[in-house]
Design a protein around this nucleic acid. Structure first.
Lengths: 198, 198
DNA sequence: ACCTGAACACCGTTCAAGT
DNA sequence: ACCTGAACACCGTTCAAGT
């Protein structure tokens, strides 16, 4: 049982998790395939077997991020189904899931939305964004059926909500968590009531 | 009058505009100080006189971007002052300026909001975002005085509006301009009326 | 199937020296 | 004050060869 077997065994996922840690701790500029290989105890050419180039590794990280973000949103949805809460609370739950992910994975989120992915991967990423909006869309459609959301194209409404969440998440970089949550509740409430006096 | 005088004369701004063109046309990965130096007809070490390192050049690009974005928003504000339009139209004007800039400068906008700048520059960038929100804030405060915007902390309202604009701009990458404008009008209208039935 | 080692072309950065 | 040329350490990528 040598220290470094010739076959690493799990190099691909080792590289991915190592890359994500580096991304979070030291930023995208510190990501180097050669350093990842060194950390994995493998030659600098070994990553090439699992990722055709550096961009392929970044693509995999981004897709992975969307999978986890989506899972987090679905969890928020499941929790709301159990509670019998109204649409505003439902949206707040989704908002907290989105912003929570953004604050815990700021650098990854930036990579997820980066405009530098290969075009085929960009399509997959765009689809992932679509899936995300679809979750908000469900909440909106349910809210409309319950009479708690105005009538009108639910896709357009969901797009507005998701835009707000994403913009808010982008702005709430390294803020205090409590302040952010208070601000977020404010934002969701404003979205519901609107800016025009009634 | 030699082809390449020893002193370039305007190297700093030449590097900046060349960098911005490369950024827009070939993405951030294609940006190399050595290539910029080659394009400027100067040695590869010359950029070091004007930017202490590559990040310093990226910082300058980002700050420049915010200056232009802010100028564009102020132009939208000035236009609204001449017209006697209501707050919704005012906000739509600001929204068009923001989204227009975002669509014409997608890669630059990404750089402007990137979380990898030096901490002192990050402060300047955060201040630039603050200045931007302040323009929206003015619109909101005026709207409140005119009775066209609900009462409540105008900063919180401006923050919500700006979040929505930024999120929308992030999502509206390479879409058709007309579709985007229709979608944007929708978003601003939804922001004004709110999602709750009244 | 998976990895190594050498090789290649390209970086960013520094620094003595030139004009 | 501004730029050059050489030098250094570091990349990403490729490919014959090893196990």
């Amino acid at each position: 049982m040598p220290d470094r077997p010739y076959h690493h065994g799990d190099l691909r996922s080792t590289l991915l998790s190592s890359a994500e840690r580096t991304l979070a701790q030291r930023g995208p500029g510190a990501l180097s395939l050669r350093e990842l290989a060194r950390e994995a105890g493998v030659s600098h050419a070994a990553p090439g077997r699992h990722f055709k180039d550096k961009q392929a590794l970044l693509d995999a990280l981004a897709l992975n991020g969307f999978r986890r973000l989506q899972a987090s949103l679905e969890r928020a949805r499941a929790e709301q189904d159990h509670a019998g809460s109204d649409t505003g609370d439902y949206l707040l739950g989704l908002a907290r899931a989105y912003v929570g992910f953004a604050m815990s994975n700021a650098a990854l989120l930036e990579l997820m939305y980066a405009r530098k992915h290969d075009s085929d991967v960009s399509d997959q990423l765009a689809a992932a964004v679509g899936d995300m909006i679809a979750i908000v869309l469900d909440a909106i459609s349910e809210g409309q059926r319950a009479g708690e959301i105005i009538e009108g194209d639910p896709t357009a409404i969901a797009f507005t909500v998701t835009s707000t969440l994403h913009g808010f998440a982008s702005f709430s970089g390294d803020e205090n968590t409590e302040d952010v949550d208070e601000s977020l509740r404010n934002v969701v409430r404003l979205l519901m009531t609107g800016l025009s006096p009634r």
